[in-house]
């Protein structure tokens, strides 16, 4: 149960890719940071909602997963560089033969995981190829 409060705190960043932006040095952060490492005490941090458009930097395809994710295999985990700069890890929903480095992706709202049959359902952002998506 200890993961529930952690998930709850992360809802804005998981549902809507809310990170931060330092208006002093124009650097974007995801996950959000409270302190800008460039500017330290002079930082001017504000919340920033990322559009979620990005590019696949690298990826791996998972063929063997734990019970909770077995039904979804094979699936693609990728490092995605957002338009604004930050990189994050996310699932790209397409066949393993379709994914490639440099692929443009956009965000979708999906189930990230479930705590068994009785626990909480974790929702959040995954990605789909821009090409061929509605």
């Amino acid at each position: 149960m200890s993961t529930v409060p952690r998930f709850w705190r992360h809802i804005p960043q998981r549902y809507n890719l809310v990170g931060t932006h330092c208006s002093k040095c124009d650097e974007y952060y995801y996950p959000p940071r409270t302190i800008c490492p460039n500017c330290r005490r002079n930082a001017k941090m504000e919340d920033h909602k990322f559009k979620g458009l990005g590019t696949v930097v690298t990826y791996t395809t998972i063929y063997n997963a734990t019970d909770d994710f077995k039904r979804q295999t094979p699936y693609n985990l990728a490092i995605i560089e957002l338009l604004e700069g930050p990189r994050l890890t996310g699932q790209v929903i397409c066949s393993p033969s379709e994914i490639e480095i440099g692929m443009k992706v956009k965000p979708v709202f999906r189930i990230l995981g479930k705590e068994g049959d009785r626990g909480i359902i974790y929702y959040g952002t995954k990605f789909v190829p821009v090409e061929g998506s509605i």
């Binding site: 979804q72 999906r110 189930i111």
Partner: peptide, 12 residues
């Protein structure tokens, strides 16, 4: 899809 339910499609 595996990771879609009535909530996720309502959000979209």
């Amino acid at each position: 899809d595996f990771d879609e339910d009535a909530v996720t499609i309502a959000v979209e």
